[in-house]
Write a protein that binds this DNA or RNA. Structure first.
Length: 172
DNA sequence: TAAGTGATCTCT
DNA sequence: GAGATCACTTAA
């Protein structure tokens, strides 16, 4: 039995969503084939004040989905070759998202997007079957003892406070 | 440890 | 319009 996560799931506190996303399944339907992998690692980017977030300096063309409603994808291109996948949380107007950094068999945010054939075509689309990329609850329970929190990767530019906050969660 | 790679952002 | 930056990966 599996259940597709709806907007309601994502329209909550970002840290809570991130915590509960661990153990859920990222599901991709692409050219007639469906692939699913369990989410194993995520990072929180929450609010206007988070200096590590793209939203820290207000809305731009790129980060627009972060300011939109929950349950939509925010996908951006970086380092000239990598796509990053985020799911938007919280209500419209409040910029927040969870970066999906790893699934079983594809560790690393850019590896996972390559694995699932994810690019800008999905940016801004909702996490539903219609868009071809969504998240399912397949009743896997991840106990807190198996979740490790640590500082987010590659955000040293955000200053010590925001760089050190333990907003990266992964299953160990 | 460092190179690769190009869109996006922030100034001029 | 130019220059810097970048929520990374790979190969060494």
């Amino acid at each position: 039995m599996s259940q597709i996560l709806t907007q309601k799931f994502f329209n909550r506190q970002t840290e809570k969503v991130a915590r509960e996303l661990l153990g859920k399944f990222l599901v991709r339907r692409y050219r007639g084939k469906t692939t699913a992998r369990m989410i194993t690692e995520v990072e929180v980017y929450d609010g206007f004040n988070d200096k590590a977030s793209h939203a820290a300096r207000g809305p731009t063309k790129r980060n627009a989905p972060m300011f939109g409603p929950a349950g939509h994808w925010y996908i951006y291109f970086t380092y000239g070759m990598h796509w990053m996948l985020n799911i938007v949380t919280r209500e419209a107007g409040y910029p927040a998202a969870v970066l999906i950094r790893g699934v079983q068999g594809a560790n690393g945010p850019a590896r996972l997007t390559r694995f699932f054939k994810i690019d800008k075509k999905l940016n801004g689309l909702p996490a539903t079957k219609e868009s071809g990329l969504w998240v399912e609850d397949r009743r896997v329970r991840v106990q807190s003892a198996y979740i490790k929190k640590g500082p987010r990767m590659g955000v040293g530019y955000a200053g010590p406070y925001w760089a050190r906050r333990r907003l990266r969660l992964r299953i160990v």
